[in-house]
């Protein structure tokens, strides 16, 4: 479906993005603080952090829109401004608001296509691909958030680039749109593109991404493949005889381990199964909740504690505070049980 025939075998595919010692100060405020990470070619990398963590600032430095205070950000070893064919190398969708309200979506794309020397036929092809061919002839001022996101995505894909940089692409999309986006990104990644996608919501991207970079307060918190960072979740259950329940679960093909506080952690996210097993074993269930994976735990503590937009001194729930996490776990447990 994508036109890969024109540029398909060019050297832009599978390039590496390298952020090295990157810092940015706005006056006394340090938005990005000595940040280093790399985005590997041909993979989808999630760039996560709470609102105000410095994600957009980092992406804007990578794209030459902001001048770094220190450090470098390169694409295949080159600064963005030095790329010979920027539109054909990197496609970026930075914010959903960057359209003149009086210009139609199609004309907006034609303006960009002109500047990059891309024929008009490619514009119509992308409008088809992103699902907005009809709306594109109306003025952009009346577009919904979802339409703007799709138009932004179409703009990013104009040059059929090997690298895609998407800043909060799921923002403002309805569940249907998010499902569409997820499928669309997988399709793009399957063509071998490098995709860097920022988000402040872990669940929005965790099913889509291969690698993960987490930042908070402008600093790197964690970096690595999802398989290493994520760890498994499970079902936390409290009963009168944890060992007996463990045995019963073993028969149901579920491994489990008794925790220090006497509760049992079952390696499944099927809460209903755990409850059923306990009932059949004649054991009371005092508590049954989904335990989040280490990654969720980590990310939750970050988003709670480091949202700088709330101002200083807002040191919130860490992982040692059981209150909030359990509450959220219980909610997702209900969802699981209800299905």
């Amino acid at each position: 479906m994508m036109t890969t025939q024109t540029r398909g075998e060019s050297a832009v595919r599978g390039v590496q993005l390298e952020i090295t010692g990157l810092s940015k100060n706005f006056g006394a405020f340090t938005a990005v603080d000595n940040l280093s990470f790399s985005v590997r070619p041909g993979r989808i990398t999630g760039f996560l952090g709470p609102n105000g963590a410095g994600k957009t600032t980092t992406l804007r430095m990578l794209l030459g829109l902001l001048r770094p205070t220190a450090g470098t950000a390169t694409i295949a070893g080159q600064r963005y401004a030095d790329l010979d064919d920027p539109t054909g190398t990197v496609g970026a969708a930075l914010e959903a608001t960057g359209f003149h309200p009086g210009r139609s979506g199609r004309d907006h794309l034609l303006v960009l296509a002109d500047a990059a020397g891309i024929p008009a036929a490619r514009v119509d092809q992308l409008l088809e691909l992103t699902g907005i061919p009809a709306a594109a002839n109306q003025r952009a001022g009346g577009y919904s958030m979802g339409m703007r996101q799709r138009l932004g995505l179409a703009a990013a894909l104009l040059g059929d680039p090997g690298v895609l940089i998407l800043d909060e692409p799921a923002n403002g999309l309805d569940p249907e749109g998010i499902r569409w986006l997820r499928g669309f990104l997988r399709h793009l990644a399957s063509e071998g593109r490098t995709i860097l996608i920022s988000s402040h919501i872990l669940s929005e991207v965790e099913q889509t991404i291969d690698d993960l970079v987490i930042i908070a307060n402008g600093r790197l918190v964690r970096e690595g493949p999802m398989s290493e960072i994520a760890g498994a979740g499970g079902a936390l259950v409290r009963t009168s005889d944890a060992d007996r329940l463990a045995g019963a679960l073993r028969i149901a093909d579920v491994d489990s381990s008794v925790q220090e506080d006497g509760s049992l952690l079952a390696e499944t996210d099927d809460l209903r199964l755990v409850g059923d097993v306990a009932l059949r074993a004649g054991l009371p269930v005092w508590e049954l909740s989904a335990k989040r994976s280490d990654l969720e735990e980590l990310y939750f503590s970050l988003t709670e504690g480091t949202n700088r937009n709330l101002g200083p001194g807002h040191r919130a729930v860490g992982s040692d505070d059981p209150g909030a996490p359990v509450e959220q776990g219980a909610v997702s447990g209900q969802e699981g049980a209800g299905q």
Binding site: G64, L65, A81, P86, E95, T97, G98, A115, A116
Partner: peptide, 22 residues
């Protein structure tokens, strides 16, 4: 001014990153 106001200056400089040229 319209480019600043509607933030289209971002896509202008992304498609033509050599700013003097743009």
């Amino acid at each position: 001014g319209g480019e600043y106001r509607h933030k289209t200056i971002t896509s202008t400089f992304l498609t033509t990153p050599r700013r003097l040229r743009a």
